[in-house]
Design a protein around this nucleic acid. Structure first.
Lengths: 111, 111
DNA sequence: GCATATATGTCGATCATCGGTATATACCGT
DNA sequence: ACGGTATATACCGATGATCGACATATATGC
């Protein structure tokens, strides 16, 4: 519970915070959340979902078959939501500290 | 320039944003910045300083000898400050997105 | 016939960080 | 005299999340 989340993990949890979604939907959502900056690799996504499932952060919500293709929907658990909230607090504290110090820094001349 | 910073790297840059500091001073400062949460390993610190030196994010400011012990002071370069500022913006955007979605999420009943 | 979108998955490689260890000096309490 | 803690820098093997590439399958558009 103590360790920091990497960006892909963070964004997957964020995507699922909105609503249950299936893998490919998460892929699209993460891209939208990050304004196109982050494009998850399939390997990253499914490895992360497996890991977070066994950690109890996400759970399989339901499975559907659309056009002969499987859609496995995941949802955020309360534990996962709490983990995400903790991470948000940590990031807030860190950004606050960094901004404060960057503002105090003399501009230029230190190249 | 695109990849995300890990917390130790982020906090080392933040520590140096305030003023030039030597290794052990950074160790103490990072602990203070993070309210005692993050205690950098010596290996992490010096490996990171070497890496960031070759990336041009930090530079050796000066060297002193105090009580027969070497003190190597590092300072943040303009490039390093820019990199930190970029990272702060990224984290701000991510926390904003996560908070928005966590607030919209129905509380409880999804364990 | 070929590219693209949808959809899930495996596998080897990379790399920052962790945890432990090494090396020194100085100070404090017992 | 001895042990513990603080100061100070540095190396090294292990870990683990992510990357990049590949595999498989269906549907749609050109």
């Amino acid at each position: 519970m103590t360790d920091t989340l990497r960006e892909p993990t963070f964004l997957i949890l964020t995507a699922l915070a909105a609503r249950p979604q299936h893998g490919y939907g998460i892929l699209r959502d993460v891209e939208e959340i990050s304004s196109g900056r982050v494009r998850l690799r399939a390997g990253t996504l499914y490895t992360a979902l497996d890991r977070m499932s066994s950690d109890g952060w996400v759970a399989i919500d339901r499975e559907e078959v659309v056009d002969g293709r499987l859609r496995r929907y995941y949802r955020l658990t309360d534990l996962g939501a709490a983990r995400l909230a903790t991470e948000v607090e940590r990031m807030r504290a860190n950004t606050r500290a960094a901004e404060q110090r960057l503002r105090a820094r003399p501009i230029g001349g230190t190249a």
